[in-house]
Every structure is written in C-alpha cells, then in structure tokens.
Computed example of a mutant assay.
Amino acid sequence: MYLGSIVEIGETDALYGAPRHPYTRALLSAVPQPHDRGKRERILLDAEIPSPLNPPRGCKFSTRCPCAKPLCHEVRPPLTGEAGGRSVTCHFPFA
C-alpha cells in the first residue's frame, strides 16, 4: 500500500521474486538479506511523501517514482488483474 491505496497484490513467492510496481521494488530493496550483504542494489526514493489529505492528481506514487512519465502525473492507474492472480496499480509495471 502507498498513501492508503493498494499498489500490488499477488502470491508471496511471485511478489517477492519479481515485484512489478516500483514502490514494491523499493520496499523489498530495504529488507536486509544476510546472504546478499553488499550485493543488492538499494532503491532510495527522492522527494517527500505527499500528504494523504491532498494526494497528487494522477498516480499517488508519481512524485517519487523513478519510472514516472507524464501520463502518471495526470491519470490515476486502475488496479488491473494479470495472469497468475497478480494485480498492479501502475501504467508501466515491470515485466
């Protein structure tokens, strides 16, 4: 969840193995893994978290997303279902 909205849903192994939303990737990059010490790239998000009382116009994550495009700042993406029971709220999810 980000600012009270679901960004990604899926089976645990699939979600941890290949997150599709940029926020999910950033969250998982912050989880310590002893076997990956120093090998995993930490994703640091820029900008301040927007106010939940006054979220951005389009995607709520667009102000901090490293993949945001103009569409993301204008149109809120729907939660779309995908193969394998996955769902993601992103215009440009990772493959």
Rank of each mutant, 00 (worst) to 15 (best):
T63S: 05
T63A: 04
R40I: 02
F61E: 04
R42I: 13
L45F: 02
G10V: 14
G4H: 15
E48A: 07
P56N: 00
E8C: 02
R76G: 08
N54Q: 03
E8K: 05
E11M: 15
P32C: 09
C90H: 13
A18C: 10
G4E: 15
N54C: 02
T24Q: 04
D46I: 00
P22C: 12
L28E: 06
L3R: 15
P70F: 11
S62H: 03
L15W: 13
I6C: 13
G38R: 00
R86V: 14
H21R: 04
P56I: 02
A18S: 14
I6W: 10
Y16A: 12
I49K: 06
E41V: 13
C59K: 04
I49V: 12
P70Y: 08
A30R: 10
E74H: 09
T89N: 14
R20A: 12
Y2P: 13
S51M: 04
D13P: 08
P77W: 05
R76H: 12
G38I: 01
D46A: 08
P93I: 11
T63R: 00
E8V: 05
P22V: 05
A18V: 07
L53D: 05
Y16M: 15
H21G: 05
G10R: 09
E74V: 06
F94L: 15
E41T: 12
P19W: 01
R20C: 08
R64D: 04
A18H: 14
A14H: 14
P70T: 07
C72L: 05
E41P: 01
P19F: 03
T63M: 02
C65W: 01
Y16P: 11
F92T: 14
I9C: 11
C59P: 03
P77C: 07
P50M: 01
A26Q: 07
H91D: 10
K39N: 07
P78F: 02
L45S: 00
A30Y: 07
L3C: 14
C90Q: 10
R20F: 02
L15H: 14
S5M: 15
P55D: 02
H21A: 06
A68Y: 01
R25K: 10
I43D: 00
G17M: 11
G17F: 13
Y23K: 02
H91C: 09
V88H: 06
L44Q: 10
V31T: 09
Q33D: 11
R86Y: 09
K69D: 06
C72S: 09
L27V: 13
G81Q: 11
R40P: 00
R76P: 07
S51R: 03
D36K: 11
L44A: 12
A95G: 15
C67G: 03
L79M: 11
I43L: 01
I9L: 15
S51Y: 00
S29C: 07
I43F: 00
Y2C: 14
G4P: 14
R64K: 05
P78I: 03
G17I: 10
F94K: 15
P19Y: 04
A30G: 12
S29D: 09
V75T: 13
L15G: 14
S62T: 02
P55L: 00
L53M: 02
P70R: 08
D13T: 11
L79F: 09
R37H: 02
V88S: 11
G4W: 13
V31L: 09
I9G: 10
G4L: 13
D46Q: 06
L27M: 08
